[in-house]
């Protein structure tokens, strides 16, 4: 995989520096042109910690200048996310309070549109966008594991073991999605579609990496996971019905059907045994759990608004 296309002055200069032998990122004092520019730059710097790029020296993963630029962009990003969030006190007990917080959040539903209205091209576009995350499904929250105390650590691994196929690579969720993409005539190599995705998809992905890579944000990482799982089962059923209506291949339908059942389990684990155990250990982290949950719901809303806006206008 090669670096994505630049989207502005900062990413242009950054990608050029990353590709060069010397990798002199230190001389970059540019401000991002816009959010697209900032988020593709941040996404690429995060990616150095996952699979990396063929055209970037692996040494640059821990280059202090790259990390310095990443930190600048992350500060702006986190401040923006926090400014959208209103601190809330959850009802007691914690698990019911968190489920209620997620359920009370009302946003536009892409899954409902796919179930009833979307055409084949629109669904394929959605799958291309979703591929950025689903091909590394559950990887960002894996960064959080070593940052947790005993009980939530064991609980998170219990959930992730299922995400990663229970030891069977054939059942690894990211692999199931890859099979679905191939059967649908789409590319299944990671990030094949990175140049086509809107900024909202970059933000969704960057938020998970931000939360996963900072110990300070471990509770936000788990809160994000809880909201993600708690808004997955019923929408996955709708997605599966929409894909069946449009006669997409069984492999892709099977991916969503798997998530109906898996995420009905995972939402209970994420809310009760993972986040519940974390806040029992460290009660002051409850606000960050809610911040992470909000961010998941909020970024998903923004993506849904954009896509529904585009599709309904078409």
């Amino acid at each position: 995989m090669l670096l994505p296309k630049a989207r502005g002055e900062l990413s242009e200069a950054l990608f050029e520096a990353l590709r060069s032998e010397t990798g002199e990122v230190g001389s970059l004092h540019l401000r991002p042109t816009d959010q697209d520019d900032a988020h593709i730059a941040l996404w690429a710097m995060y990616e150095l910690h996952y699979a990396g790029f063929e055209d970037v020296d692996d040494e640059l993963e821990w280059d202090p200048d790259v990390l310095g630029l990443r930190r600048l962009l992350e500060r702006d990003f986190e401040a923006g996310l926090r400014s959208r969030h209103t601190a809330t006190t959850l009802d007691e007990p914690f698990a019911e309070g968190l489920f209620a917080y997620v359920a009370d959040h009302d946003g536009p539903s892409l899954a409902a549109y796919v179930q009833r209205t979307a055409d084949r091209e629109q669904v394929l576009e959605l799958l291309r966008h979703r591929s950025i995350y689903h091909l590394k499904e559950s990887d960002p929250v894996a960064w959080t594991v070593p940052r947790l105390p005993t009980a939530p650590k064991a609980a998170l691994i219990e959930l992730q073991y299922d995400e990663f196929g229970g030891g069977d690579p054939n059942r690894l969720h990211a692999h199931l999605f890859a099979l679905g993409l191939e059967a649908s005539g789409l590319r299944a190599d990671p990030y094949a579609y990175i140049d086509d995705v809107p900024v909202e998809i970059l933000e969704l992905n960057n938020a998970m990496s931000l939360f996963g890579l900072h110990r300070r944000l471990r509770a936000a990482s788990l809160g994000h996971l809880a909201a993600f799982e708690a808004t997955s089962s019923l929408p996955s059923r709708r997605m599966a019905q929409g894909l069946a209506r449009l006669e997409l291949p069984q492999e892709m339908i099977a991916y969503y059907e798997e998530h109906v059942e898996a995420d009905a389990v995972h939402e209970q684990l994420a809310v009760r045994t993972i986040c519940g155990a974390l806040v029992a250990d460290e009660p002051h982290l409850v606000d960050d759990v809610v911040f992470g949950a909000f961010t998941c719901l909020d970024l998903e809303d923004r993506y849904a608004q954009r896509m529904l806006g585009e599709w309904e206008a078409a």
Binding site: F99, A103, S232, S233, L234, R237, V260, E261, D263, A264
Partner: peptide
């Protein structure tokens, strides 16, 4: 009420 008996499919939430 799950459509996927005997497993839960999240329907209880609605």
């Amino acid at each position: 009420k799950s459509a996927d008996q005997p497993w839960c499919d999240g329907t209880h939430k609605v």
